[in-house]
Design a protein around this nucleic acid. Structure first.
Lengths: 333, 333
DNA sequence: CGCGTTTACGTCGTTCGTAACGATA
DNA sequence: TATCGTTACGAACGACGTAAACGCG
């Protein structure tokens, strides 16, 4: 058994049991992988795959176990490398983040700008996707950090640390009747308008629906989108009243849109950052998290990583008063 | 980084930083290890050891981290091999048990006899030692099972499963005055005699002292030994009254010794068997445990291995009525 | 006939063990 | 001087890549 063999094994599995594809991904020759796979199976004395003709058809029962162990092993080799690089003062590396559109578009740019100044040699990889896609990346150990809001249930293997609170706002065109209101809006009024908001995923956005349901109101959601830019576009065309994340309204919108406070209408949201308990974080990763949420000090994160259960993590952060997003504005882009 | 390099690394560490010794243990040449170690350090860019002249003096800070990860990696390779061997119906292997004298001498022989009949090709390794020595072996992943009584605190990384209950008995020579008693002995009477019993370790034997202390009595322990054989020897010479584990009194003793029931004097003891949560157990290992304690079925053990905390394990077994040792007698040796 | 895997084979790099050297106590 | 680690070197092995053959859809 060799680390290479295990690496090849996972490469093949992650390429959909296509050896040729795996060879390209791993920058090596296809017969080489084929041979090493055979050697591994031979050494273990168990077929790891079921084959149809010459092709790999599926993962054999034994394969699943072996693959899971192999992932642990390769993760630990990565951990060793990370440890060593950090200790030798190496400033190069990769920071891989999976996050939602809102974070990627409205929150992270400034954080990343600062980060790049501190660590110009670190390659940044930013994956934007739905909560489910983020969870997928996390499950395969393909990202260092996941940043999202709500939907904690999707990330069982991660340590989730709350970063800041935020509230929704309502956006309407300048000339909309709601723009003229001189008192606080209430849910009744809002429910009388066609609404444009985020796609209802498992992202905890159901708190949107719930707010109306609790008030005994029915809503008329005429359009949903994944990101605030599209919502704003349709709000501008007069399709309806937009409900978006507070930080998604910026100075460029003030010309033709008006933001209306909705703190009192919907529950506060919490954005968190998560990482895998069994992955070693490089110093620059910890520093990134601290840039993103200043209360996430290196020390605190290392403490948190030792905890076994998410409940303990939550308990630790419960005593902290989290800032709201507004309090964290790094600069106005 | 190679699995070999990691294996060599651990070999050197486990040989007290002596490369020559590691080479012998690993059945390879000493320069080979030397070179691979250097290559590893070079690849990682961090010294893993501090050197005094040419000799390895100590493990560098980076080394500790790397070594810990390397142990995880090698454990997982072992797990892969175990899985594969089991799935391919291989009946060969090694069963390594660390246990106390009482178990090794009075309980295990019969279990092992049966086990060997079922699995003649499995090499048995039995290490006898104090609780602390057993804990040491366990910590280094050198045994599959630990079997002991009490002292659960010494084994934080293990899943401990209770096997059976037992009580102490009192042994005296045939002609001793206590041998003539026709009623139950009480602590008062016992305290008036010089006592011979087990060494007080952390083995939970303190319940011995505690029983007397709770009754407001002081004892006169004139001799302690690690094993019942020695205690019985000194009891025969008239040194004092022996207090030993019930199963340590067998038919060979009936000629010149008398056993007196002491169930009502001291709390009941529980013997457990423990294994590491992150080690894959071969089928024959599970079968051994079941031979040792019939309620430890394969299914139950696999369930228990999934639990994160010992408290959950305890809870699961709490609902079971454990047998006493006597109920488990396999045969009289 | 194309796609993907296996087989065959030559090349290259690496590991291994022996032997000699160096350093340390 | 004895012990232990490093360096040097030749032999053997193993991995890799190219090229060709094979099976399957």
């Amino acid at each position: 058994m060799t680390l290479q063999q295990l690496k090849y094994l996972l490469g093949v599995v992650d390429s959909g049991l296509n050896i040729t594809a795996a060879a390209e991904r791993l920058y090596t020759s296809q017969p080489g992988i084929s041979k090493q796979l055979k050697l591994l199976e031979q050494e273990l004395g168990v077929p790891l795959f079921t084959r149809r003709g010459k092709s790999l058809a599926a993962i054999a029962p034994a394969g699943h176990d072996v693959i899971a162990r192999a992932r642990n092993i390769l993760r630990e080799t990565q951990n060793i490398r990370s440890l060593a690089r950090d200790l030798s003062g190496e400033q190069q590396g990769t920071l891989c983040i999976a996050t939602t559109h809102t974070q990627a578009r409205y929150v992270l740019p400034e954080v990343i700008r600062t980060f790049r100044e501190c660590y110009p040699k670190v390659t940044l990889e930013l994956h934007q996707g739905t909560s489910e896609q983020i969870a997928e990346l996390v499950a395969n150990n393909q990202v260092d950090f996941a940043i999202a809001t709500g939907s904690q249930a999707l990330f069982p293997g991660l340590v989730l640390m709350p970063c800041y609170h935020w509230d929704r706002i309502i956006v309407v065109p300048n000339d909309h009747e709601l723009a003229q209101l001189d008192q606080d809006l209430d849910l009744d009024q809002l429910a009388q308008h066609p609404l444009v908001t985020y796609v209802f995923s498992l992202t905890g956005q159901s708190s949107f629906k719930k707010a109306f349901a609790d008030a005994g109101l029915t809503t008329n959601v005429v359009f949903t989108a994944r990101d605030a830019d599209i919502i704003k576009t349709y709000v501008r065309t007069g399709l309806g009243v937009g409900v978006i994340a507070g930080m998604a309204f910026d100075s460029h919108d003030t010309g033709d849109l008006v933001a209306i406070n909705a703190e009192h209408l919907f529950p506060q949201q919490t954005t968190w950052i998560g990482f895998s308990r069994d992955t070693v974080l490089r110093q620059y990763m910890l520093d990134f998290a601290e840039l993103f949420a200043p209360h996430l000090t290196t020390e605190r994160m290392r403490d948190v990583a030792e905890l076994e259960y998410q409940e303990e993590v939550d308990a630790l952060f419960e005593t902290l008063v989290l800032p709201t997003r507004e309090a964290l504005v790094y600069a106005d882009t």
